[in-house]
Amino acid sequence: MFAIIETGGKQYRVQEGWRFNVERLDAAAGSEFVLDKVLLVNNGGTIAVGSPYLDGGKVTCEVLAHGRDKKVVVFKKRRRKDSAVKRGHRQEFTTLKVKAISA
């Protein structure tokens, strides 16, 4: 059984027991978080597709930890203008573990 969910403007394919990172959520580590934007659920060959989301579909997750990703360097240079800008960015994320999928 797997589901396709949407959070943070991105879509993820998840199964029970899987761990995955999403954009930072406002939830304490160790708490339960319910993702209700479920696009599709495949239950052993029976497929339920929403338009765009399934009514009553939800994925229950456990919040494991919060963290920050590796630094991404953004460098912009304008040739012959003596102009250069160097910036860095570290994206914050939340690690989730899927406990249950219901449709």
Results as ranks from 00 to 15, higher is better:
48 A>H: 11
17 G>E: 08
88 G>H: 03
95 T>A: 04
86 K>L: 10
18 W>L: 05
88 G>P: 05
75 F>D: 10
40 L>A: 02
81 K>P: 09
27 A>N: 04
20 F>T: 02
68 R>G: 12
40 L>F: 01
69 D>H: 10
10 K>T: 00
82 D>F: 11
7 T>M: 03
25 L>A: 08
69 D>M: 13
33 F>Q: 04
44 G>P: 01
16 E>W: 07
41 V>I: 09
98 V>S: 13
44 G>A: 15
36 D>S: 12
60 T>C: 00
40 L>W: 05
22 V>N: 04
53 Y>I: 05
35 L>Q: 07
61 C>L: 04
75 F>L: 10
16 E>D: 06
44 G>M: 10
96 L>E: 02
51 S>V: 06
56 G>P: 03
97 K>G: 02
16 E>H: 00
69 D>N: 15
46 T>M: 12
56 G>R: 10
32 E>H: 11
78 R>F: 13
71 K>Y: 10
59 V>Y: 04
41 V>P: 00
54 L>N: 03
50 G>D: 07
98 V>D: 01
54 L>S: 08
49 V>R: 12
96 L>Y: 04
102 S>C: 09
95 T>V: 15
69 D>A: 12
48 A>P: 03
26 D>H: 10
45 G>N: 04
1 M>Y: 12
91 Q>K: 14
76 K>A: 10
76 K>F: 07
54 L>I: 03
27 A>K: 07
40 L>S: 05
92 E>W: 01
61 C>I: 06
81 K>T: 08
47 I>D: 01
13 R>D: 09
47 I>T: 06
50 G>N: 10
21 N>W: 00
55 D>G: 07
11 Q>R: 12
9 G>Q: 02
56 G>V: 02
92 E>H: 11
83 S>R: 15
82 D>K: 15
8 G>A: 12
47 I>E: 04
25 L>E: 01
42 N>K: 05
91 Q>N: 14
6 E>D: 07
31 S>G: 05
51 S>W: 11
102 S>F: 09
11 Q>M: 02
41 V>S: 01
12 Y>A: 01
75 F>P: 00
65 A>L: 08
27 A>R: 09
86 K>P: 04
38 V>W: 00
67 G>Q: 02
52 P>M: 07
90 R>C: 07
83 S>A: 13
64 L>R: 03
102 S>D: 15
103 A>H: 14
13 R>T: 07
16 E>Q: 10
72 V>E: 11
29 A>G: 01
10 K>C: 00
35 L>V: 09
68 R>S: 11
64 L>A: 07
62 E>K: 08
41 V>Y: 04
97 K>F: 01
80 R>L: 05
69 D>Y: 03
75 F>C: 00
2 F>W: 02
42 N>A: 06
9 G>K: 04
77 K>R: 11
43 N>G: 06
85 V>E: 12
61 C>E: 04
59 V>I: 09
73 V>K: 14
60 T>K: 09
89 H>F: 09
31 S>L: 00
60 T>A: 03
92 E>Y: 08
63 V>W: 03
47 I>M: 06
102 S>P: 07
67 G>F: 12
74 V>E: 15
22 V>K: 05
58 K>P: 11
55 D>C: 06
80 R>D: 10
33 F>N: 03
10 K>F: 06
76 K>H: 13
67 G>K: 04
34 V>F: 12
3 A>L: 03
38 V>L: 08
77 K>S: 08
45 G>H: 03
